[in-house]
Design a protein around this nucleic acid. Sequence first.
DNA 1: TTCAAAATCATTCAAAATCATTCATCAAAA
DNA 2: TTTTGATGAATGATTTTGAATGATTTTGAA
Lengths: 249, 249
Amino acid sequence: MLTEERYRIILERLQERGVVKLQELVELLEASESTVRRDLIDLEERQLLKRIHGGAALPSPKMQEPGIEEKTFRNIQQKNAVARLAAAQVVDGESIYIDAGTTTLAMIPFIEAKDVTVVTNGLSHIEGLVSKRIKSYLLGGMMKIHTKAVIGSIALQNMDNFRFDRCFLGTNGVDVEMGYTTPDPEEALIKRRAHQLSASSYVLADSSKLGEVSFAKLLDLNEATLITESLTPSWRKSISQKTNIIEGS
Amino acid sequence: MLTEERYRIILERLQERGVVKLQELVELLEASESTVRRDLIDLEERQLLKRIHGGAALPSPKMQEPGIEEKTFRNIQQKNAVARLAAAQVVDGESIYIDAGTTTLAMIPFIEAKDVTVVTNGLSHIEGLVSKRIKSYLLGGMMKIHTKAVIGSIALQNMDNFRFDRCFLGTNGVDVEMGYTTPDPEEALIKRRAHQLSASSYVLADSSKLGEVSFAKLLDLNEATLITESLTPSWRKSISQKTNIIEGS
DNA sequence: TTCAAAATCATTCAAAATCATTCATCAAAA
DNA sequence: TTTTGATGAATGATTTTGAATGATTTTGAA
């Protein structure tokens, strides 16, 4: 494995976890302890990490994103839990579609599968994807101003260039009767088309979305697998008759 | 195999993976180690990749040194002068194509025409466009990792959805004999196609680009109007025989 | 707290891999 | 024909790597 490749993997892992053990890296990189140790020394000299006894940690309390505005800590926790579950579904070598939206955005750092190809209509998603060196295609079409998502007929047509092993969609509402719903009909069209082009479809929804109903319908419950972080027993009972569920611990 | 073909394959592979091993390329290109090594040296000189022990990696888009590079005040002044001239060409109600790149990016704030529709392949451009409430379409396709530009065959195909009144292209070199040139052949293809789909084509180049020649050719001088901020009389004479010029005061 | 065992670390060295340079060959252009 | 440029092989130089060694730090029990 190339030196730069190791550097990248180390930093990536560090971003995800905050700290890494040296032995963990030895195993992950399939390199000797000496080599990993040398890598850490190099990266520390570049100020990209701080070496600690037994491994390495993020340098200074890093600049967090300035705009975590209205989201509560609890919401972020939930969103990340869902995102992590979703990312774990991706298998090496697959091509997947990732919908625009904050929940799907959160799953990108957790993707560990190798050699995947990602198509997305989310402008914000591209940044994270390229920094993970994931081969990425952006859907062309009209920019929706507020959400930085690509929508419209050209996007739909553009999507026909692709076929996906899996698609991961966001939603604003999950309801037993109404299925999955979202406010913007244009976005709903895009999501629906992604579903049609995918072998498997997943909808990501933290528990705050349960019981909500929005304007435009994406899918019926039975058309996709629901990924959520936790369900009350009564919800689990009523939903599980209609759809597959991937649920956090 | 032709040299240029090898270059193309190397850069392609690099875009896909972020790093390539030298031995990998030897096998892929069916050339000797010496030849591949020479190719890498050439491409590094063109700044299209960074050689590392064991192979090559994408050039790090690190902080530009304010010393030599184009971050000087003078260059920004020039770039803005060119950008302003270009933006002034846009007429109310037109649809235009704006190429990825820093010079074309600079023209967006200066656009005053009303009711224009913009198509671009530059991710960075979208931000400015939507904040000016300009109706914007993004080209779909593969993301080029270090310039945040969309390239590739899908982008080309995607572009066929549009016709433009004008297109504004960036360049890295303007030469009387060689015409307009740029380092990346993939980007050159995109630019060329934009030209073909436009009623009028403009190439933006501050005076530092004059006499420079890069790797891949976009257009001949006579195919587009050159927009630049100032010309020496000798340059004006030699270029004006071949092309239209829009020149700053 | 203090001590000893365990874990982690820094340093060194030799082997392996990779690199730069040189040179001979070949084909196309002059 | 000679010349030019590209190519591949060979050589020795350089860099990277993994293991070994002893030093240092952490851990846990007394």
